[in-house]
Every structure is written in structure tokens, then in C-alpha cells.
Write a protein that binds this DNA or RNA. Structure first.
Lengths: 142, 142
DNA sequence: ATCTTATTGAAAATAGATTTCATTTGTGAG
DNA sequence: CTCACAAATGAAATCTATTTTCAATAAGAT
């Protein structure tokens, strides 16, 4: 089993959730897939590990994992909702998504911080959160 | 009638599409409305101008306008698909939304450009689009 | 005014996501 | 280890968003 999946399992337990077979399968599938997955695609892959798993469980588990910050929802043109594993990197990260193959590159937002800080000063808003998503085509797909 | 809507009409004609009543209504509603609208909300508003308009036409017109670059599809957390008018003489803008009262402040992304440019160089991606949304509390609501 | 054909609206079909509920299964207590 | 019970699951039903189909309508050229 993958390290990331094991860490997630511990976190689930810690938060008082049960570590069930379907959940373990979803975690492993997410942790081992390099790209971001739609619920449907995740379902297809998860079934290779556990034939009886239901699509409903995929949706429920994704919602839970999103709430716990283990996966991140990504919006892309085709097949609007996709989910990407939030890797072990601590701080806040943003995503660069390839429109064609779905590959995700993460990057830190250090440069954005100064932009937001200036914005805060100028508008008087107390900035609490932000969401940046960049879409393009990766080197291989160009 | 709004200037923006008139320009769009001309553009439609230019491209060989017919300027029909439903299309005119959608254009006017988009040009005069909020920053971005879901198809459903656009439908609700368009009906105030033309009672017989169908939701199907809203979808079809949005697809057409998007292809012609007059509106831009935006993905947001809740109610995934929204459409924003691409205004005249106004570059790309971002939104600063107040969590409490919903007030929207727009700001240009000049500072973001350099961030994205560096990102492009470093990753080899061809960056095509980005979406930044900032949430906070406005001066009045703090 | 007439003709041609793009466009429309209603209904049906499809796709995606959520709710319901009876059954199963983790997990902590004994 | 076994039991009991709440949490979690899966199948079916439901709901919501979007697309397709097709006969009727209306824009725009002549």
C-alpha cells in the first residue's frame, strides 16, 4: 500500500470515521493515479480493486475526503467535476491543469500573496480565502 | 438597447447568423445583468423580456455566443456552469466577493500576469485561461 | 409578398448526482 | 473472541441539468 493512502487512513481514524474496505479502495486508487479523476473514472478504476463497490460510495467518499482536505475539487471544461489528491506538501497550493490530458501540476502561491495583500489594502476587504485555477496544455499535448 | 448588445447583434449578422427575437433577448439580458449568470438564472431573467422563450434556446444561444467569444464560461464551486459577458474595452477582470453581503468588487489582474508568465516558462505549459476568485468581508461587513 | 432554410419551443431522452432504505460491517465493550 | 450497535454500504428510485428530436415558425433574400 501507498504511503499517502496510509497517512489518509490514519487521518480518517483520527477524525472518528471508520476505515472500511470501500474507503480504503478509494484512497488507494486516488493515491496511485497521477492525474485528476472524475467520479466516473475513479469508479471504473476502483472496481478493479473491489468489484462490489458502488458509484454512490465513490461520491460519498469524495465529499468526505474533500471536507477533510485530502482531495481537491477541480473544475475543467469537459466533465466539469474532477478530483485530485492533495499530496503531502503542507502549504496552500494551486493547480495548473492540462486541458487535453488532465495532467495536474501544483505550484505554491507565494507570488500571489503580495497581489492579495495589495488588494486588501486598496479595497478594505478582509481577505479570507482564494481559489486560483490555471488551465493550459502541457508540453506533451501541445 | 445597450451598446454592447448592439455590437453583438452586428457581429452575429456578420458571421451569417440570424438576429432573432430570442437571441436579442439573451444578448440584452447578458449585457445588462450581473457579472455571471447560470443558464437557469439567465432563463428566469430573459423570460421577463420575452415570455415564450424556451430554456433550450438559452442553452443553444450560450453555446453559440461562447463559440463567437462574446461570453465566457466560468466554473464556480456551487452551480458549476456560469456565463459572463465579455465586455468591451475591458481586459480580463477578477472578482472579490464579500462572504457576508455578496457584494462584488472587480479588479484587473495585471499583477497576476507576471506570475503566470513565470509559471509558463518554468513548466512548459501553454497557459490558456485562468480563474481567480477571492472571498473575504467587505469594509461594511467587518 | 413569397420562398427557403435557420431557428425555435415542447417533449422525450440522456447524463450526472443525490436521497432513501434495508442490509452489511467496523469497532469498542464485555 | 464474541456481541451489539451505530456507521457505512449498495441498489433502486429520485432529482436536476443538459441535449436531442422534430414539427412549426419566422428571418432575410429575392
Amino acid at each position: 500500500m501507498n504511503t499517502l493512502a496510509r497517512v489518509w487512513e490514519d487521518q480518517l481514524k483520527q477524525e472518528g470515521y471508520r476505515v472500511t474496505k470501500p474507503r480504503r479502495v478509494v484512497l488507494e486508487t486516488l493515491a496511485s493515479g497521477a492525474v485528476h479523476l472524475t467520479p466516473e473514472e475513479l469508479y471504473r478504476r476502483a472496481r478493479r480493486r473491489h468489484r462490489r463497490i458502488g458509484l454512490v460510495t465513490i461520491y460519498r467518499t469524495l465529499t468526505l475526503l474533500e471536507r477533510l482536505g485530502m482531495v481537491q475539487r477541480v473544475h475543467v471544461e469537459a466533465g466539469c467535476h474532477s478530483f485530485a489528491a492533495v499530496r503531502l506538501n503542507r502549504g496552500h497550493h494551486h493547480q495548473l491543469v492540462c486541458r487535453t490530458c488532465g495532467r495536474v501540476e501544483e505550484f505554491p502561491d507565494c507570488a500571489l500573496d503580495s497581489v492579495l495583500h495589495r488588494l486588501q489594502t486598496r479595497t478594505g476587504f478582509a481577505i479570507e480565502a482564494h481559489h486560483l485555477e490555471v488551465v493550459g496544455r502541457c508540453p506533451e499535448c501541445r
